[in-house]
């Protein structure tokens, strides 16, 4: 049983957020630049991977997921997994004509 307590105070400095922000801006610049390069079918994959990395940064750092209880991380994984399975099953219809 998790304890009903007022949250633990974790005060990361301001610095880490600036680094995260810098990384996010760099990735945005990167994804906008490589969009001009023609990777063929891979270009969507590259764009999505960069977007996923950015979301990961926002989730763990800005949204404090790394400080939260383990349950929170499991929830996020469940939600993302659910959506992934929906896409896969949906495409079992669309990708086999």
């Amino acid at each position: 049983m998790e304890e009903n307590k007022v949250q633990h105070v974790h005060t990361p400095g301001y610095g880490i957020y600036f680094y995260v922000w810098l990384a996010l801006i760099t990735l945005t610049a990167l994804t906008a630049t490589v969009a001009g390069v023609n990777f063929g079918k891979l270009s969507i994959v590259v764009a999505l991977i960069i977007a996923a990395v950015k979301s990961y940064l926002v989730l763990t750092e800005f949204m404090h997921l790394k400080f939260e209880m383990r349950a929170f991380r499991i929830f996020v994984i469940v939600a993302i997994l659910f959506f992934t399975i929906l896409i896969v099953l949906l495409f079992s219809d669309y990708s086999f004509y």
Partner: peptide
Amino acid sequence: DIIWIFLFPLFYLI
């Protein structure tokens, strides 16, 4: 913000 992170490449960068 996260939703926009995905909308941006899907609509502008393809």
